[in-house]
Amino acid sequence: MELNATTILVTFAGVFLICFMKGAFGGGFAIVGIPLLSLVMDPVTAGGLLAPLFVVMDLFGLRYWKPSTWSRPDLILLVPGLVVGIGIGYLLFRVLDHRAIAIVMAAVTLVFVGLWFLRGGEVAVRPRSSPKAVAAGMTSGITTMVAHSGGPPLAMYLLPLGLGKQVYAGTTSLFFTVGNLIKAAPWLALARPAGAVWALMAICLLAIPTGVSLGWRLHARLDQRQMYTACYALLVVTALKLLWDGVSGYLH
């Protein structure tokens, strides 16, 4: 990867967008900013670049998503599955068909959003389920390790619980803080960043405070319904990105 003005500006914009999404929604939608990075680097290099930056973003975000915004009963069920999923994703990273995983995840996500749309945009509140939580955590762990797309499985578990907007975002934030701390070392081992990537990483650190802070301001302005509607809309964007990645991978 050549470190030039275009690479720096495009990568900085992508990282800023990811930070903004973390500030506004707590995490899970990093894939929205990844298309920008794909313009100037390959996916593995992007993964190695983002892994440490995710940790810094998440730790900075905890100044907004305090313990009072965490749903502890859900995190107790979700996090063990997340840890196992990241381990599975790391072990199978080089043999898993990333394209097939992307297509399946996209299809499931679109069905989930489609059912919400058919209900008129209303959230059908459902009780907490231990098996669903563990499955969501594990699936999220695998997909976040393989494609930085752990958001949809987690959202499909949390959104139907009808949590308050701050609790939803705070729970999501802590979940991915744990996940990103765990997967940082495996990703660095897989990607082995070179000097240019470390330099670019240092530059992108400057995007974190402003990006997260501006995202938080948006979150504060959204009411409960707007927050949930935005999350479902972002799930569609995420699903379409995954679908494109999967299908185009088979066509090339």
Rank of each mutant, 00 (worst) to 15 (best):
M1Q: 03
E2N: 01
N4D: 15
T6H: 08
T7W: 08
T7N: 06
A13L: 10
F16R: 00
I18S: 10
I18A: 10
I18Q: 07
C19S: 15
K22R: 11
F25N: 13
F25Q: 11
G26F: 12
V32R: 00
G33W: 02
P35K: 01
L36V: 03
L37D: 07
S38F: 13
V40D: 09
V40W: 07
D42L: 02
D42G: 13
P43D: 10
V44K: 15
T45I: 00
A51K: 11
P52I: 01
D58P: 02
L59I: 14
L59R: 06
L62Y: 03
R63Q: 09
W65E: 11
P67M: 09
S68E: 15
S68Q: 15
S68C: 10
T69S: 14
T69F: 14
S71Q: 11
R72W: 13
R72M: 03
P73D: 03
D74Y: 10
L75F: 12
I76V: 10
L78C: 08
V79H: 04
G81V: 00
V83R: 03
V83P: 10
G85Q: 05
I86K: 07
I88D: 01
Y90L: 14
R94Q: 14
R94A: 12
H98V: 04
H98G: 11
R99I: 01
I101K: 03
A102P: 06
M105A: 15
A106Y: 03
F112K: 04
F112T: 10
F112N: 06
V113G: 08
L115C: 03
W116S: 12
F117N: 05
G120D: 09
E122P: 06
E122R: 13
A124I: 09
V125D: 05
V125W: 02
S129I: 00
S130Q: 01
A133H: 06
A135P: 03
A135G: 02
A136F: 05
I142G: 06
I142K: 08
T144F: 08
M145Y: 08
M145A: 04
A147Y: 07
S149F: 01
G151C: 07
P153Y: 10
P153S: 09
L154E: 02
L154H: 02
L154Y: 04
M156A: 13
L159F: 02
L159T: 13
L163P: 07
V167N: 05
Y168E: 09
S173T: 00
F176V: 04
G179S: 08
N180H: 06
L181T: 00
L181Y: 03
A184G: 01
W187S: 06
A189N: 09
A191S: 15
A191C: 11
A194G: 14
V197M: 04
V197T: 15
C204P: 09
L205G: 13
A207V: 14
P209S: 10
V212D: 04
S213V: 05
L214I: 12
W216A: 15
R217F: 05
L218A: 05
H219L: 15
R221F: 09
L222F: 09
D223L: 01
Q224C: 05
Y232C: 07
L235P: 13
V236G: 01
A239H: 04
L240H: 10
W244D: 05
W244N: 10
W244E: 09
G246M: 07
S248N: 07
G249M: 10
L251M: 15
